[in-house]
Nucleic acid binder design. Structure first.
Lengths: 335, 335
DNA sequence: TTGAAAGCGCTACCAC
DNA sequence: GTGGTAGCGCTTTCAA
């Protein structure tokens, strides 16, 4: 079932059939409708692979995420998908496992499949290494500010968000605030820590390194961090976690130790994945517009406007207050 | 950067270069290593698109899910991805939105991109309509038992799982058990309802249609269903929900009405998505091997063994007991 | 307005 | 062992 059959059936050459189907070039209106009708009857579907080979470019967007299982990413993919679909594009999904070799492998795939563009979420390669792998691909980096000429990224305002989160807690009277931080090799984790610190400084609260725990973005990491926290007799009344998942893990640990959230301890997360509103009490968190991040990234990739190279966007965030934060009690907890 | 350059650089024909790179046909060992070395130095990546056109088939697996945002699907995709990756395949992801037109559109994409196979999760087309769309594609239907010759599906034991869930509740002394059911147009929802009923019959508990609420697999549906339940003065001590998300939604409603789970009401879900172990108390549920479902499906697709057509598999499930189920109290609740 | 033919990058058939 | 060449299905010059 190729364009050949359609052409034969309509008594025209493949050239004419192609033109009729794509609406390119001069063609008699009658011929066009006739060919289209035939194509329709035959249920003709153009072979996208052949077209790609000819055009040197496919109507496919590559999506590279470390782990589709982390609820943040499906929401992101959903956003990308929306605008991709509007433009007749489809998504090529490759896992990077957050490892350099994974990235390289996935990127090679994208290359050899001639995707129209790639949105990449990663932070394990440094700028120049990443740039090298990305060579020749149109791309948008997500949640990572690449310091390269011609590079495009879209990111939330992580620093501002973290600052707002901490300020929310401070406004509630908290002074001893723990930060469950992400790996400092990761840009967004660093930014969130910086925002956190900035808020404390602004409020004249002395920084206490004992109060920052380095973990990662997972539930288990948050759980372990909270456990560690509880073991040492650290005095604190609130926790700001680098990610919702980590916050939820911490809450699990508190629950097991019969500490009430928010009565004994206030908790704030970051991301506002759907999950944040499912848990009880609902998690107070910094809302990223996750799907929008994806939409913007895909839009940048598909937008063929010239002079759009090197554009980047940072999206605003806001804290959404749910049930895990409360005014600090006068009688401190956990000593 | 084509095979041409490699061939020139190594002073061989493209034929020889191709053979060296693919390890097909007779070739001198020396030549092979030389070509490979050159390819390596040049960073040659075969153009997968051209190869696809030639071979009439791509090393790509299509994945059609209704909504990547539902946590069940990323886990599934993860499983598919694992075996796809092992075989050098990549995933083409298309959303169906659970609508016939979405399915048709996505399937057409898969067709024209010549995917090696498709795993499809859907239940809004009847068997023959689906068969028509699937025509010419190698496919595995997931969580849906297609009654077609030559069709392949993989599914969990939904009926058995639901029965076990109900029996778990019955074993705890519950008699007035509500089932938040899924849309009866959906096979797995029907099977789960059937399993539920079967358990009651076996235990000589009269079926009470007042106790089954039709909702769907979402959190909100579960929430609304539970609200409806609470409004009418229905007497019940336990809820079995068609999906974890629905169970969690119901728990949210109970929480808002100051009903304690599991003290006042026991709750059982279905799926065992990660989320089930994140919520407090942990959700007792029927565990599907979600990633394994994906692995098996992908395996069936990539397995080129002859005579494997029409094979299908159903995977076992088990109930995992966490914190949302308890022995019924003598003093009933909510009347 | 239409058609013949080249060629996208690759593999595989056939000849040497 | 190696190389010329056809051809996958399509789009697009260039002629007619």
């Amino acid at each position: 079932m190729g364009i050949r059959e359609v052409a034969d059936m309509a008594n025209v050459s493949v050239t004419t059939a192609s033109r009729a189907l794509n609406g390119t070039g001069r063609i008699a209106a009658g011929t066009r409708t006739r060919v289209k009708k035939v194509a329709d009857e035959l249920g003709y579907q153009p072979n996208e692979v052949a077209r790609q080979l000819k055009e040197g470019m496919s109507s496919t967007l590559g999506v590279l995420v470390p782990d589709i299982t982390n609820p943040f990413f499906p929401e992101l993919v959903h956003g990308i998908q929306e605008v991709a679909e509007e433009n007749g594009h489809v998504l090529l999904l490759a896992p990077t496992n957050g490892e350099p070799t994974g990235i390289a492998k996935a990127l090679r795939q994208m290359h050899s499949r001639q995707v129209a563009g790639v949105v990449i979420v990663d932070d394990c390669l440094d700028d120049s290494a990443l740039a090298k792998e990305l060579d020749g691909l149109k791309y948008v980096a997500l949640d990572r500010k690449l310091h390269l000429s011609q590079s495009t990224w879209v990111s939330s305002d992580h620093l501002g968000g973290a600052q707002m989160a901490a300020e929310h807690l401070i406004g509630l009277g908290h002074r001893r605030i723990v930060h469950i931080a992400g790996p400092q090799g990761i840009g967004v984790a660093r930014e969130r820590l910086a925002g956190f610190r900035q808020a404390l400084e602004l409020a004249d609260i002395p920084l206490d390194d004992e109060l920052v725990f380095y973990a990662d973005f997972t539930e288990d990491a948050g759980y372990q961090a909270a456990l560690g926290l509880l073991e040492r007799d650290i005095c604190f009344t609130a926790v700001f976690a680098v990610a919702d998942l980590a916050a939820i893990g911490a809450m699990r640990a508190f629950d097991e130790h019969h500490l009430d959230v928010p009565k004994d301890i206030s908790v704030v997360g970051f991301d506002d994945i759907h999950l944040a509103s499912y848990v009880r009490p609902g998690l107070t968190t910094v809302k990223q517009q996750i799907a929008e991040l994806g939409r913007v990234a895909a839009g940048l990739l598909l937008d063929s406007d010239p002079g759009t190279e090197g554009r980047s966007r940072t999206l605003p965030v806001e804290v959404v207050t749910r049930g895990t934060t409360a005014r600090v009690r006068q009688s401190e907890v956990s000593t």
